[in-house]
Write a protein that binds this DNA or RNA. Structure first.
Lengths: 304, 304
DNA sequence: TTCGATTAATGCATATTACGCATTTATAAA
DNA sequence: TTTATAAATGCGTAATATGCATTAATCGAA
């Protein structure tokens, strides 16, 4: 199945033969156009007529003319065949991922750069795809993927599951965020143990979700407890609390530009103090459009 | 080709198989509905996919699901196939003469009873036929038939031509029309020689056309000249002239009811003094609707 | 009228295609 | 692991479509 021309649309051969004959009103010429023997065309028409059980053409050896029924069928069939071809092509565009719908969820860390850039590039490359974006935190994305409510999720990784593909797109440092003039700022880079006695201000479970679990994990691995002096339900409020000197917090690199000027940040240089962002989708999701989105995302990752 | 069910519409088998499978999402059940082997269905779908060059269904041995392209095709194809079926059936109605157009011309002698009765019956029997009626004199009808501007003509006969069918529908006496108290009225029936010395008032060539030629012919066969004392361009005027005593004229039986009360009529009893009305159509016109009209006309003739 | 040219239809052998049956392969439940 | 069930595949056969050669019909020119 190599060549694919519009006349390959399945099995309208009889009808198309008839329509061309209705145009030419000459069996020999029509057969030539169809690249078949004249006798084959003759039989095709005969077969069509016997299937329909009414005559489409009056023919002598000299003249060929449409019957009234033939005219009617010709008139009715022409739009049907073009609609048919259009349906087939529309489906082909979907198959090729040029049309259709892609539902993408993202969490905060991907929202600042990764998602905007990918979306911009994707829409430029596939302008006819209906792209649906939703902000959902990592946990919710897992549910949504399982329920087929979304096709793709940018979530906090890692995520390893036999039913899903997972593509790591970022692996960024975590930063300690402090008020201005904080003692920790004297060093340009920090190590985990520098955090030992610091008071922490964290987003609550509702707000931080998976990130919070991740931090708990990292801290415990380093013999520390992630016991917040304060919890905030809102990011702006949280930064405000830090700025006011009520404690420090921990942010991924991608959000540093959104901290404002009342706080400072220093990287924690340690393999555990990193946050991975992964793009996840179901293995069973064979949608070409979805895979195209993944490809666009993958290519941008190199740059980012 | 005896049975004719809607699923006989030529060669949409692959598409229909796909649509039913899209409904059932189960090869075995679908194959049952199609009354073929499951393997055949499997191959049909495979063939359809290879023709289209994209997958329509994701299938494991356990689950069958439409791909996005499959959904799209299914959505687009459903109306296409119903339109297709409708086109075929519309053409069938034309083929059966239940739909379509019949263009009928008639001349005066048929206008009073024959055409109205036939039209009434025909429209009752074939309400969806678009019936076009035109008043055209015999000569014009012959032109119109030749040029395919009309399908049928009620004309003054006889009309014998190898390319046309001709059906005689009436053979009526000619009547002499006189003013009241005219000498000829003393006899209840006339013979041709009674007309020998009468002054004639006739329609002119434009108005009477073929009828006028016919009268010339009849008169000459009986050794008389058809030399009108007056010619009228209008029927009403003509009757007026007769009533005023300026001469007599000759009318077919079918028009007697339209003479008014100022004139009287007597039949000329002679085989030559008759007017035949024939219904004529091209042999090459195979339109079922036209033939149906002829049949209706033929049956009414018996009554008339 | 006859002959030549042209057209659609048909007989026949062949190639292609579709099908059913039997079997295999894959998956979910027990 | 076994069992049951579903879709896919190998293979032989039947149905179908095609091309070539020929026939039958019709028009136009000699």
């Amino acid at each position: 199945m190599v060549s694919r021309t519009s006349d390959l649309t399945p099995d309208a051969t009889l009808l198309k033969s008839f329509l061309i004959l209705a145009e030419e009103l000459n069996f020999r010429r029509t057969a030539e156009r169809l690249a078949i023997d004249q006798s084959a065309l003759s039989r095709r028409i005969k077969k069509l007529e016997s299937l329909l059980d009414y005559k489409l053409l009056e023919r002598t050896t000299r003249d060929v003319a449409l019957t009234a029924a033939g005219q009617e069928l010709c008139k009715g069939l022409t739009p049907v065949l073009t609609d048919y071809a259009h349906s087939v092509e529309a489906a082909r565009r979907v198959a090729e991922g040029k049309t259709g719908r892609v539902r993408v969820a993202y969490m905060a860390f991907a929202a600042t750069e990764m998602v905007p850039q990918t979306v911009a590039r994707f829409q430029q490359q596939y302008p006819d795809i209906d792209l649906e974006l939703r902000y959902i935190r990592t946990q919710g994305q897992k549910m949504a993927l399982a329920n087929d409510e979304i096709d793709l999720g940018y979530m906090i990784g890692p995520f390893d599951n036999a039913e899903y593909h997972s593509l790591q797109l970022a692996d960024e440092r975590l930063y300690v965020v402090t008020p201005k003039n904080h003692a920790l700022l004297r060093k340009h880079t920090l190590s985990p143990r520098d955090l030992k006695d610091e008071k922490l201000v964290l987003g609550d479970m509702e707000e931080w979700g998976e990130y919070r679990w991740k931090l708990e994990d990292v801290f415990s691995q380093h013999g520390m407890r992630l016991s917040p002096a304060l919890e905030a339900t809102n990011t702006l409020a949280l930064i405000g609390l830090v700025a006011a000197g009520l404690g420090i917090t921990i942010y991924p690199e991608s959000l540093l530009n959104f901290l404002g000027r009342r706080v400072e940040a220093r990287p924690v240089v340690h393999p555990d103090f990193r946050s991975k962002t992964v793009l996840v989708w179901k293995r069973s999701n064979r949608s070409r459009a979805v895979l195209n989105f993944v490809e666009v995302s993958r290519h941008l990752q190199v740059r980012g």
